[in-house]
Write a protein that binds this DNA or RNA. Structure first.
Length: 571
RNA sequence: GAUUCCGUAGCUCAGCUGGUAGAGCAAUACACUUUUAAUGUAUGGGCCCUGGGUUCGAAUCCCAGCGGGAUCACCA
């Protein structure tokens, strides 16, 4: 559906345009340029009520209750809503009552931005309100908002709920659904809290390239683009890890970045093609230190966002209060399956997984098999924040080998509600080992493992050769974290503008009768010789000329000259 | 990608086994000087997602498409 075309204005849209014109005729500019001297905000003056206090505020008029010579309206600004009281003889003290009778009562529509000056008072019924002495139209709204109504018990009626329209028209969603705005305020609070925590610890926020010639740091299908001047392919980053590590090589102690990453993969309730990860790298630390840092960080963030370390997600109450339980992957698999992966061969793991009813195939190595068992049997059980540690080496090409066991890595993931929200390593800084791991990934990719990385970033290896201090790194899926902190099971609810299929605008075009005749023929044939079409249409030379030009102009057909013959094609 | 549900007025939704389209809110007009889902009276507003098919007749039944939701699969 679309309302983009001027041909299809609804009745209400036409009425609003007429009001707009009337206002102009009365000398009222519906889109004035001058600033409006706002001094107050709706909820602030409601919370700190002072009888008779002069106020000046601005916002959208969201409801109007006319009672003849007096009226009530509601003003919604960025802070919330407040009731306005309009009295005819105070708005219009003289003989001329136009401002009240015409402008306020007739020509203003719900959704219009107005500015009001007046004083605070309480109505008979006890509602704190602004007694308006003067109002100004600040901006006219030409399209009716999908406005719900709220009753005395606070129940919302006819709420604007259609997810498609809410996501496509987030601006309208934000105006009429205050709880939606709340989600995004919390989202920003989360980012602020995290920044503050890192900055207080002395770490530095940095920016690294979004356009990369080698998309490294993760295994995912990248978006490709092209740089014209250099005439080279470029990729949108899938991760920023390798660039942050280069900065650690360069001598920064701690660097972090909120990284918009892009992955050209499927979309669903928890995946959007562009999403935000936070990555931080801190030198001279290991993953044990990072676990302690992470739990303090998340407790801090939860408190800043929700005022409490506890957060509700669906049927669960998640407690982000540190410390979190730590379980090795080996122990976790023992806990939930009774099977001990320690020291087992690939064949034994293969058979064990098969015995658990897990779909296995021959391309799977040890690491992949263990990961499948964990993903299938264990992962979903961790509701409260839990660190799962010591992942198999094969799955972690950027992570340092475990100090006690060469088959494992010093890696942890933080599980919340059965999903990964953070991932951290003692970072691999041995350039020779790193090169071998990359080469192993390329072999796996060639074998058909589409999760393995296919590119080797030789510049990154060069930087490691100069020497990277022992470093621990942490990555957090910001979208997923804010989903948990705002009780939203869908990523679309925590992104202002989630990816959608583009809207199709079927433009309705009025064709003349003659144009229709031609169009009907060409629509069947798709493409035909111009003279044959002219004959079939049976129009006079002049009628033909006007009609075919009309169709070409409306971009419905195209006339092309091929080998001295004129061909008409359907567009 | 698979399965399934949905698409009707600005919004939220009815519309039965096919018979010329309905409500509430919103809108327009009138009345009303402290209402608050204000109220009362009257009025207007629809490519019923698109395209085919069946039928004397389709919002309704069938097929295809488009868009969206949910579940599953995939996603270090």
């Amino acid at each position: 559906m679309n309302n983009m075309s001027a041909f299809e204005l609804s009745e209400q849209e036409i009425q609003r345009r007429e009001s707009l014109n009337k206002l102009r005729e009365m000398g009222i500019n519906p889109y004035p340029a001058d600033l409006y001297p706002v001094t107050d905000y709706a909820t602030v003056i409601k919370d700190k009520f002072e009888e008779g206090k002069q106020v000046c505020l601005a916002g959208r008029m969201m409801s109007q209750r006319d009672m003849g010579k007096a009226s009530f309206a509601e003003l919604q600004d960025s802070s919330g809503r407040i009731q306005l009281y309009f009295n005819r003889d105070e708005i219009c003290p003289g003989e001329d009552k136009t401002m009240y009778n015409q402008v306020f009562k007739k020509l203003l529509d719900l959704g219009d931005f107005i500015g009001v000056k007046g004083y605070m008072f309480t109505t008979k019924v006890g509602e704190t309100s602004v007694h308006v002495q003067e109002f100004t139209l600040l901006s006219k709204s030409l399209k009716p908002l999908p406005l719900p109504k709220t009753d005395a018990e606070g129940r919302i009626h006819d709420a604007f709920t259609d997810p498609e329209m809410r996501y496509r028209q987030r601006y309208a969603d934000l105006v009429v659904n205050p709880h939606v705005k709340e989600i995004f305020i919390k989202r920003t609070k989360l980012f602020t809290a995290m920044r503050q925590f890192f900055n207080d610890a002395g770490y530095m926020e940095v920016e690294t390239p979004v356009l990369q010639s080698i998309p490294g740091g993760a295994a995912a299908r990248p978006f490709m683009t092209h740089h014209n001047a250099l005439d080279i392919p470029l990729y949108m980053r899938i991760a920023n890890e390798l660039y942050l590590k280069r900065l650690i090589v360069g001598g920064f102690d701690g660097v972090y970045e909120f990284s918009k990453n892009f992955r050209n993969e499927g979309m669903d309730r928890t995946h959007n093609p562009e999403f935000t990860a936070m990555e931080i790298y801190i030198s001279y630390k290991d993953y044990n230190w990072m676990m302690e840092f992470t739990e303090r960080l998340l407790e801090h963030c939860a408190v800043e966002v929700n005022g409490s370390p506890e957060s509700t997600f669906g049927e669960h109450t998640i407690n982000f209060k540190a410390p979190y339980k730590r379980v090795t992957m080996r122990q976790s698999i023992i806990d939930f399956t009774g099977f001990d992966i320690g020291g087992k061969s690939e064949e034994e793991l293969f058979n064990a997984a098969k015995g658990m009813g897990i779909a296995v195939d021959n391309t799977m190595g040890k690491g992949k098999l263990i990961d499948e068992i964990f993903g299938e049997k264990c992962e979903g059980n961790y509701i409260q924040p839990t660190f799962i540690t010591d992942y198999p080496k094969e799955m972690s090409p950027l992570c340092k080998e475990h100090r006690d066991n060469p088959e494992l890595t010093e890696r942890f993931e933080l599980m919340v509600c059965g999903k990964e929200v953070a991932n951290a390593y003692s970072e691999l800084n041995d350039p020779i080992d790193q090169r071998e791991r990359f080469e192993e990934q390329v072999r796996l990719a060639e074998k058909g493992d589409d999760e393995a990385g296919q590119f080797i970033d030789y510049d990154f290896l060069r930087s490691l050769e100069y020497g990277m201090p022992p470093t621990s790194g942490l990555g957090i899926g910001m979208d997923r974290l804010i989903m948990y902190l705002t009780n939203n099971p869908s990523i679309q609810e925590v992104l202002f503008f989630p990816q959608m299929r583009p809207e199709v605008h079927t433009v309705k075009i009025e064709l003349s009768d003659n144009e229709k005749v031609i169009f009907d023929i060409i629509q069947k044939e798709k493409s035909m010789d111009l003279n044959a079409l002219k004959m079939q249409a049976g129009l006079s030379g002049k009628q033909w000329d006007v009609s075919i030009k009309g169709l070409t102009k409306q971009n419905l057909v195209k006339v092309a000259k091929i080998n001295e013959e004129l061909i008409v094609d359907l567009v």
